[in-house]
Amino acid sequence: MTEAPLSRYGLIKATLGPVLSLVCRPKMRGKEHIPPTGPVILAGNHVAFLDSLILQLVCQRRVIFIGKGEYMTGKGFKGKLQSWFFSSGGMIPVDRGHVGAASAALMTGCRLLNEGHAFGVFPEGTRSPDGRLYRGRTGIARLALMTGAPIVPFAVTGTEKVQPSGAGLPRPARVKVSFGAPLEFSRYDGLERDRYVLRAITDTVMNEVRQLSGQEYVDVYATKIKTSQAVRG
């Protein structure tokens, strides 16, 4: 599936934007770090479902994300409405349960960046289970080396108060979005298969995110914590 036309994206931003602005009162810092044109990877923390929507609200550019395929396959009126909403907002669906999901996401990201888009990534791979910042997946490093796109780190704070885990309707709370200076890794050109280089780049990005967010860092994948919690539950 391709990204939604700008007209649909503009409609979503025009209708949902004022509501999110009223509920979240977003405050942005460092917007000058986002290049106005050309490929860029926006990489940040992920503490609540609203994170990607908030990022799209505060950015002047359209930011395209990859999301769960099930968001686009619901049945009935509710399912069709949800599918239209996410596709219009710039989400590209990927079946995470498929054996080739990671490769498909990587190839989609490369295509979008080579077309000059802004591509949003949550390197942790899933929402934080407890508000801490977890180890990043190295796919973001491969994206940067394969496309030459700079990485702009960002941090969203406060969305966990707007939408606490298990809560229904959003609650008013101040949200802050901070962007760091662009990171470029051209010195590692040709080393996109070197796992040590990929880990070093990813850790550099996550350290920048940690400084922007102020979160405690845990050098473990968040999915491992969620799996252990599910087993204990």
Rank of each mutant, 00 (worst) to 15 (best):
residue 78 K to P: 01
residue 190 G to D: 13
residue 103 S to N: 13
residue 8 R to E: 05
residue 105 A to M: 11
residue 27 K to C: 04
residue 156 V to P: 01
residue 97 G to W: 07
residue 92 I to C: 03
residue 164 P to M: 10
residue 145 L to Q: 02
residue 211 Q to R: 12
residue 67 G to P: 05
residue 221 Y to D: 04
residue 30 G to C: 11
residue 171 R to C: 12
residue 128 S to C: 10
residue 51 D to C: 06
residue 26 P to Y: 09
residue 228 S to Q: 12
residue 187 R to D: 14
residue 120 G to K: 04
residue 59 C to M: 15
residue 65 F to N: 03
residue 120 G to W: 04
residue 117 H to R: 13
residue 160 E to Q: 15
residue 55 L to V: 15
residue 112 L to A: 12
residue 205 V to S: 03
residue 143 L to H: 01
residue 58 V to L: 06
residue 82 Q to M: 15
residue 70 E to H: 14
residue 225 I to D: 00
residue 37 T to F: 09
residue 170 P to R: 10
residue 99 V to T: 07
residue 120 G to L: 08
residue 133 L to P: 03
residue 7 S to M: 06
residue 161 K to F: 12
residue 60 Q to I: 03
residue 216 E to Q: 05
residue 127 R to S: 09
residue 139 G to A: 07
residue 192 E to Y: 12
residue 215 Q to R: 05
residue 233 G to Y: 02
residue 224 K to M: 08
residue 92 I to S: 00
residue 152 V to Y: 06
residue 47 V to H: 08
residue 63 V to Q: 03
residue 137 R to H: 14
residue 114 N to D: 15
residue 154 F to M: 13
residue 145 L to T: 02
residue 170 P to H: 11
residue 3 E to R: 14
residue 51 D to N: 07
residue 138 T to L: 07
residue 26 P to K: 07
residue 100 G to K: 07
residue 48 A to I: 12
residue 39 P to Q: 04
residue 157 T to S: 09
residue 185 F to C: 08
residue 157 T to Y: 01
residue 8 R to I: 06
residue 184 E to D: 14
residue 195 R to L: 12
residue 53 L to M: 05
residue 224 K to C: 04
residue 172 P to D: 11
residue 137 R to D: 02
residue 34 I to Q: 09
residue 27 K to M: 08
residue 113 L to M: 09
residue 228 S to I: 06
residue 225 I to H: 07
residue 218 V to D: 04
residue 2 T to N: 15
residue 140 I to H: 01
residue 31 K to H: 11
residue 88 S to W: 01
residue 100 G to H: 06
residue 174 R to D: 13
residue 126 T to I: 11
residue 195 R to S: 12
residue 224 K to L: 10
residue 92 I to T: 02
residue 41 I to W: 03
residue 224 K to Q: 10
residue 181 A to C: 11
residue 128 S to T: 05
residue 39 P to M: 05
residue 219 D to C: 06
residue 56 Q to Y: 01
residue 52 S to Q: 06
residue 134 Y to Q: 09
residue 209 V to W: 00
residue 197 V to S: 05
residue 58 V to Y: 02
residue 61 R to Q: 13
residue 205 V to F: 06
residue 60 Q to D: 14
residue 219 D to Q: 07
residue 206 M to V: 06
residue 5 P to T: 03
residue 76 G to C: 12
